[in-house]
Simulated assay, not measured.
Amino acid sequence: MPGLDYFSFAEMWSPLFLVFMLLIATLYAFVVGPWRQRFGGVEAVPVVRQLAFYGAMLLLYLVHGGPLSLLGHLMFTFHMTDMAISYIIVPPLLLYGIPGWLWKWAFGRAFWKPFRLFANPLFGLFAFNLLFSFYHMPDVHDWVMTHYVIHGFFYALLLVVALLNWWHVMCPVPEWSRVTSLRKLGYIFANGLLLTPACVLIIFAPEPLFAVYNDPQVWVQAMGYCVSGDPARLLEQFEGPAFFNLMSGREDQQLGGIVMKLLQEFVNIWALYSVFMQWYRKEKSQEDDPAFDHAASGRLNNV
């Protein structure tokens, strides 16, 4: 992309954040490896699940500290790509990569009992979708993007509620699951439905909505988190974010909304297929088991 050579190595790659993510990945390697038994780990974590966790760490670094983070301040399309990766792709990778015994060690204590409300499926479903939609109201988005502390807090909060949302789709602790397989299918469908209004508003808006990507002065204020020194010097080189964008503000906004919705639907289709196949295999194995009480199972599923 033209103009990226203007930024320094530190501004492009955020070395301190990279070190932080590497420390988390190293700690994970020790916890699931030589320290496993200290955390109640009886079963080893398969390599594919470890790779899922490391993949999540890499993606989080790229979208919050690497080049994608910088690009997300230059084009709305990249911003929505970062959002989709952070809160739709990364959470299931983390839930798959962190073993059940580690979740039990961390959250199986009496301390967490008063917070059980947050484990309700309806809370996870509505908290994420409402918070995400609220963030993309133009005035809210511009305010968050131009206040560094609020920006960091809000992004962290979105990740927590995204994990709570995905928890009910692929709960890593079977005995903590509160949603049956068939209801998970409805849960996934509802997720796609609840996020649609925000994407539709962004895609079909008759004009650009977000000042961060269209007003040079607001853009410079937001860029203050990405560049060293006085960010106003950027305006001496080129006129705001339009320098980086090959599209108009409205086209960039439309493409961003489309990217967000398509990535969400792609992940939802994968989740629907996975949940359906798990349910099908379970039902098939129970049908083939002559000792299984089908009548009792039907009564339990209807509770």
Rank of each mutant, 00 (worst) to 15 (best):
P2E: 15
Y6C: 00
F7T: 07
F9Y: 14
A10N: 14
A10H: 05
E11Y: 07
M12L: 15
A25I: 05
A25F: 02
V31K: 05
P34E: 08
P34K: 12
W35C: 04
F39S: 08
G41K: 02
V42H: 12
V42G: 13
L51A: 14
A52K: 06
M57Y: 01
Y61K: 04
Y61C: 03
L62C: 03
G66K: 09
G66Q: 07
T77S: 15
F78K: 02
F78M: 12
Y87A: 00
P91N: 11
P91I: 09
Y96W: 14
G97N: 08
W101Y: 13
W101H: 10
L102W: 12
L102A: 10
A106W: 09
F107V: 05
R109K: 15
P114N: 08
P114M: 07
L117A: 10
G124M: 04
G124S: 05
L131V: 12
Y135T: 09
Y135I: 01
D142I: 02
M145A: 04
V149H: 10
H151D: 10
H151M: 03
Y155W: 00
L159D: 04
L163K: 01
W167S: 02
P172E: 10
P174L: 04
T180F: 03
K184E: 10
G186Q: 07
I188Q: 08
F189E: 02
N191I: 02
G192K: 08
G192P: 09
P197Q: 13
A198G: 07
V200I: 15
I203M: 14
P206D: 12
P206F: 05
P206N: 10
L209S: 13
D215I: 03
V218N: 08
V220H: 04
Q221D: 10
Q221P: 01
A222K: 10
D230H: 06
A232E: 14
A232Y: 11
A232T: 15
R233T: 15
L235Y: 04
E236W: 03
Q237S: 10
N245G: 02
L246H: 11
M247I: 00
S248C: 05
G257I: 08
G257K: 07
Q264E: 11
V267G: 01
W270V: 13
A271C: 09
S274P: 00
V275R: 01
F276K: 02
F276N: 05
Q278E: 14
E283T: 08
K284P: 00
K284A: 10
S285K: 11
D288N: 12
F292H: 13
F292R: 11
L300D: 13
N301Q: 12
N301V: 00
